[in-house]
Design a protein around this nucleic acid. Structure first.
Lengths: 176, 176
DNA sequence: GTGTACATGTAAAGTGTTACATGATTTC
DNA sequence: GAAATCATGTAACACTTTACATGTACAC
């Protein structure tokens, strides 16, 4: 999903500024399944303005650049809806952790133990953030998305508790 | 993880051609956590040659371009090992499915039911491929990585069976 | 006083994908 | 006879990140 559609989608849930969109994508409910930086969000919003899919009202503030609050237009809503008609592409899951485990085995087997224990902390952390997001979330779909994320993180953690031990033993016995 | 390190890692598990690396990344054990196209793999291998991290022997074939089989050098192994010392970055999980669920709710709620049922098929498919990969896999780390993937896919499917129904009901009652 | 949050935006650099070019061989 | 598999490689394009530019206000 490109940044333009992502912005359109976020705006369908309520008006927002570029800054707010970035925050949602970086830390909010969207952080679990998307990513975008200022360098792609601001240009995307400008292009959406040019094609009339969003409008923008400015609120002046003292000491700061004007806040530019974007809203979806009727056209934007239709465009989003027709994007939603397409079946979503497969997930893109890139995990340096899994790659590291697989590649460390041959060249640096002692590393595996550490990777696993660090990974548990990672999942615990993700679970904490998702749990706190769950407190705020409102719409059924929002609850569903957070729930989906939580469920996966918990499953991953449980897997590490079980299979992580086994792997560590296996790799260590190979070293010996 | 950049394509160069990915190639180095795959070569640490055994010699391979660019074509084989692409296949592993697209359909094999690596497909669960990485991605790369010919357009990035071939140039990466050339660069790795230039910096002496891999060597290459050619096997001529009739009617086809020579097979170029790459092997890790001692230098390549050390470089990979020092990459492995870095703690792996966070997972990058991009899910058009989750975005679609969240964004459809407002502009196209009937779509949600379909998204969920298509998604079940998606997970079932992933489970099938991972299960068949599990048959071939050999090393402890390989088994661990596939197991991790399987566990997550199963958890996701289970979540959909439970929460998917609820969501569909919620969204439908909102429409009415 | 130091760091973080607020707020927008651009330019350069890097990375990667898609599409193209080439062509035999095997499977349906 | 069409489509997939084997096999390498390049060029154009798209996308993103990182760094820069600018500046206030508030919390510690």
């Amino acid at each position: 999903m490109d940044v333009k559609t992502l912005c359109l989608g976020i705006l369908s849930l309520g008006d927002a500024t570029g800054y707010e969109i970035k925050k949602l994508v970086a830390d909010g409910a969207f952080s679990f399944f998307s990513e975008a930086s200022y360098g792609s969000i601001y240009p995307a919003l400008t292009k959406l303005m040019d094609s009339g899919l969003v409008t923008c009202r400015s609120e002046s503030q003292d000491g700061r650049p004007d806040k530019k609050i974007y809203s979806l237009t009727e056209d934007g809503e239709q465009t989003l809806k027709s994007s939603m008609r397409q079946s979503p592409g497969p997930d893109k899951q890139r995990s340096e952790f899994l790659a590291s485990v697989l590649f460390s085995e041959a060249v640096y087997p002692e590393r595996v133990t550490q990777l696993i224990s660090e990974r548990k902390l990672y999942h615990e952390d993700r679970i904490r953030s998702l749990t706190s997001l769950q407190q705020e979330e409102l719409s059924p779909a929002g609850r569903f998305v957070i729930g989906y994320g939580l469920h996966i993180q918990r499953a991953a953690l449980a897997f590490l508790e079980d299979a992580g031990e086994l792997l560590v033993q296996d790799v260590e016995s190979d070293v010996v």
